[in-house]
């Protein structure tokens, strides 16, 4: 039976060189002179260093991200400025000034024509529009 096999088999016996354990004890008892005990602070030191490195990289990463994002916006502004993009946008009065206030009801056809001419609408186009409107 299986159980008998394990019971019949005596525990393996290893040997050691003569006087080994005496020499071993002497060798092991020299350890305190060579190795200082490690305190809890020393044990936690690597973890603290790792946490500090993580924080630093997080701060540096956030800083770099902010700087590069800001730079991009500014570059874009400069790009459009250089192109004269702002000059391409027609200059108009503010909407409230057109529709509010005392003068709002007093806008004449001439005012409208002046405005259209000022915004670049050609005279031919204006004449064509007037023809369509039956003027």
């Amino acid at each position: 039976m299986g159980k008998d096999i394990l019971d019949k088999t005596s525990k393996p016996s290893f040997g050691v060189p003569e006087g080994y354990f005496d020499r071993l004890q002497v060798r092991l008892q020299e350890i305190p002179g060579k190795e200082a005990p490690v305190s809890t602070w020393q044990k936690s030191k690597p973890y603290l260093v790792m946490a500090a490195c993580f924080l630093l990289s997080l701060i540096a990463g956030t800083g770099i991200l902010k700087m590069t994002t800001g730079q991009n916006v500014s570059d874009a502004d400069q790009f459009y400025y250089d192109l004269g993009y702002a000059d391409l946008i027609p200059v108009t009065y503010d909407a409230p000034s057109l529709y509010e206030g005392e003068g709002a009801a007093e806008i004449s056809s001439e005012d409208i024509e002046d405005y259209l001419i000022a915004t670049g609408v050609s005279v031919n186009r204006l004449a064509y529009s007037e023809t369509l409107n039956g003027k």
Binding site: T9, P12, S13, F14
Partner: peptide, 15 residues
Amino acid sequence: EDQHFNGDEAQRLLL
């Protein structure tokens, strides 16, 4: 190959 092993074959098998 252990020179310090003093056991028999059954013990070797067990290990």
